[in-house]
Nucleic acid binder design. Structure first.
Lengths: 163, 163
DNA sequence: ACGAAATATTTTATATATAAAATGTTTTTC
DNA sequence: GAAAAACATTTTATATATAAAATATTTCGT
């Protein structure tokens, strides 16, 4: 009369065993939502009148000095092409990003940071880092290192072969 | 001639010290984005023709048998009131959720799962758990436990006093 | 070199999200 | 008990996101 009952079929057993996968996922989602929605979004709007997707767009470009095609960019940002186009339109209009077709392949556009965009992003990234330090800086080095290692494992479990 | 240089002013020093807060944040965001955008969203759409916000709406109600006011709900979901209203309109229309004004306070609405909504959510939640087990189930118990503990610390760092 | 297929992006239609104003209700204050 | 303040939600206007169709260019096969 002790312990929980177990079903014998494969599918049911999976769920009844001590998997905490869904709790882990929900906690992961809670943590990133809290940071994004309760802290980062407000700061981005107040101090820079911008948004996280726009930051991400610029951050991707900052890592690629030669620029990125629209397709590469939307794939790295994990957003749709239409979304990437909309963000690019804004940022080109504001002079932060340059978008050019290379003469040898006029199907693609290559987007890159403008000089103005580079300066702007440097300031933005520095403040972003300060915000995160003030949020997470109290965690011990050991905890941060463990989290990075374990989240690395999570990441490698969930990355798709083709994505 | 060894090691990195340190500035002496407070603000610069913060950044130059060995904080990895921003890397931790970006990895956290990557993990939850990967799970949501590359796996969960597609499954929710294909198998249930629904979305994560709609799932979240129902999940919040499932935890509160007496129902929740719209304000409580939008606060727990971390979305705007207008967004909650829009989702409620859909789900009421589909008969999954009931929305009533209590006679003593007609400023508020109390929303709760309908019997149909309870059955529907039970199926949805069971599949959701299966998806997460197939994604994350290879992680060891030890790793999952460590992650839960460490993400618990992260969560307690970032929850706001009033939010 | 020509038509078909593949590729890259934008456009269109629609869903989801926010912020701020508007609406209606309850509570407080005097 | 009436006016003001506080509260809870919806509405409005707009931004952000997706999926799918449309457009345009390049590459492949013969």
């Amino acid at each position: 009369m002790s312990g929980k009952q177990h079903s014998t079929d494969q599918e049911t057993r999976l769920i009844e065993e001590d998997h905490h996968s869904i709790k882990l996922w929900l906690r992961l989602l809670t943590c990133s939502s809290l940071i994004e929605k309760k802290h980062l979004r407000g700061s981005l709007r107040e101090e820079f009148n911008t948004t996280l997707p726009r930051f991400d767009f610029l951050a991707q470009l900052e890592r690629s000095a030669d620029g990125l095609t629209m397709g590469e960019l939307s794939s790295r940002m994990m957003v749709s092409g239409g979304n990437a186009t909309g963000l690019a339109n804004q940022l080109v209009k504001e002079g932060l990003v340059e978008r050019n077709s290379p003469p040898n392949n006029r199907r693609t556009f290559v987007v890159k940071l403008s000089p103005k965009g580079k300066k702007y992003f440097a300031k933005l990234a520095a403040r972003h880092e300060e915000w995160m330090i003030s949020l997470l800086g109290k965690l011990s080095d050991t905890d941060v290192r463990s989290l990075m290692r374990l989240l690395g494992k999570v990441k490698s479990e969930v990355v798709q072969p083709s994505g």
